[in-house]
C-alpha cells in the first residue's frame, strides 16, 4: 500500500503538486492521468525520491520513504521510463540484471532471473540475452525496460509513460502484456500516462490530476459514470463516452451463459468494445463467447451491449 499524504512540490515558488493525498492499495494498478504539466510525473518521481517532496510524506507499507537510504529505497522499487533508458553499452542480460547486480546477487541466480523475465515477456532468452539495445526494435527495447524494472522482484513498480514513444501496434501488445503480468504477479503499479484509452484499458484505479491537484480518484467506471467536475468530464469523456464505457466492461459480465451461436469466437476476457468491433466486422448481431481453451461457453448479442 502506498500513501501519499498531503504532498507538495514547488518550483520557483510555484506549486506543481499541491496538497496531494492518495492511497494506492496493494496489488492495484493505479494510473496517474492528466494533461501535460499537471504534475503526474513529478508525483511519480517523488515516490522514489528522484524529486524530493517539499511538504508531506509518502509511505510504502507504512514506512516513510525518507526513512530509508535513497539508493536502498530505489533498489526496492522498479522504475521504467518512456525512452527505456537502457544502457547502450550493456547487453540485454546485463541491463535486466542491473538491480540484482547492485544488490549483489550470485551470478547463477541473476542468469536464471534474466531467463525467467525474458520468457515472461515472450523474448527467446538465448536469442536476446546477448544482444545490445540498438539491435532491438522499439517494442522489444521497452519489454526489456519493463523486465529490468521487475528484475529484483520489487514490491512496487513505477512506470512513467512507458509506452508513450512506441508505435500503436507495438503499444497495444505491450499494454496486453503489462495487463497479463500485473495479473500474474500481483505487483502494485503506479503508471503515468496522458492517454485516457491506455488508462481505461490498464487501470484498476485512476487518479486524475489537474494543475497539481487531485481532481478525482476512483475506478475507471466511476470516472466515466460519475465525473466529479467539469474538468474530469471534459478530460475523460470529451468524445466517445459510450465507447469508453464499453471498453471498461468485459464480455463475461454481459454474456448469456449456456447458449451457442455460429461465427467468430469472442474471448471471455474481451471488452464489450472489442465484442462490438467483432460484430461490426463480421456483420453479426450475435457471436459465440469462448473461454481460454477455445470452448464456447455462451453468447453475446448486440442488445446485451446496451443493457
Amino acid at each position: 500500500m502506498i500513501e501519499l499524504d498531503r504532498i507538495s512540490k514547488f518550483y520557483n515558488g510555484r506549486a506543481v503538486v499541491e496538497e496531494l493525498s492518495l492511497t494506492v492499495p496493494t496489488g492495484a494498478l493505479c494510473v496517474l492521468l492528466g494533461p501535460s504539466g499537471c504534475g503526474k510525473s513529478t508525483t511519480l518521481r517523488m515516490v522514489n525520491r528522484l524529486v524530493p517532496a517539499d511538504r508531506g510524506t509518502i509511505r510504502i507499507d507504512g514506512e516513510a520513504v525518507d526513512a530509508l537510504p535513497v539508493a536502498a529505497l530505489r533498489r526496492r522499487i522498479g522504475y521504467a521510463i518512456q525512452s527505456t533508458g537502457l544502457f547502450p553499452h550493456w547487453r540485454v542480460e546485463d541491463n535486466i540484471a542491473t538491480v540484482p547486480r547492485l544488490l549483489g546477487w550470485k551470478r547463477g541466480r541473476m542468469r536464471d532471473r534474466v531467463t525467467e523475465l525474458l520468457e515472461m515477456f515472450r523474448l527467446d532468452p538465448e536469442t536476446y540475452r546477448g544482444k545490445y539495445p540498438h539491435e532491438l526494435s522499439g517494442g522489444e527495447q521497452q519489454r526489456v525496460g519493463v523486465a529490468r524494472a521487475l528484475a529484483a522482484d520489487p514490491e512496487l513498480l513505477l512506470m512513467d509513460e512507458p509506452f508513450g514513444a512506441i508505435d500503436p501496434i507495438a503499444r497495444d501488445s505491450l499494454q496486453g502484456e503489462l495487463a497479463r503480468i500485473h495479473r500474474e504477479t500481483g505487483k502494485t503499479i503506479v503508471f503515468v500516462t496522458h492517454d485516457i484509452e491506455e488508462a481505461l484499458r490498464l487501470a484498476s484505479d485512476i487518479a486524475i490530476l489537474d494543475r497539481g491537484r487531485l481532481a478525482q480518484f476512483g475506478a475507471p467506471l466511476d470516472l466515466l459514470e460519475h465525473p466529479a467536475s467539469d474538468f474530469v468530464r471534459d478530460f475523460v469523456g470529451a468524445q466517445g463516452i459510450g465507447l469508453k464505457l464499453l471498453s471498461v466492461r468485459r464480455v463475461a459480465e454481459r454474456m448469456r451463459r449456456g447458449e451457442t451461436a455460429e461465427g467468430e469466437k469472442v474471448p471471455l476476457e474481451a471488452t464489450l468494445r472489442e465484442a462490438l468491433a467483432a460484430m461490426t466486422v463480421h456483420h453479426a448481431s450475435v457471436l459465440p463467447v469462448a473461454d481460454g481453451d477455445g470452448t464456447v461457453v455462451g453468447t453475446i448479442a448486440l442488445t446485451d451491449l446496451v443493457r
Binding site: 527505456t84 544502457f87 547492485l102
Partner: peptide, 18 residues
C-alpha cells in the same frame, strides 16, 4: 549521454559514484 539513461540509472538505485 542521453539524460534519460542517467535518470534510469539513478531511479534504479545506482549511487552517484556508480
Amino acid at each position: 549521454i542521453e539524460p534519460t539513461i542517467v535518470d534510469a540509472a539513478r531511479g534504479m538505485g545506482m549511487t552517484e559514484r556508480q
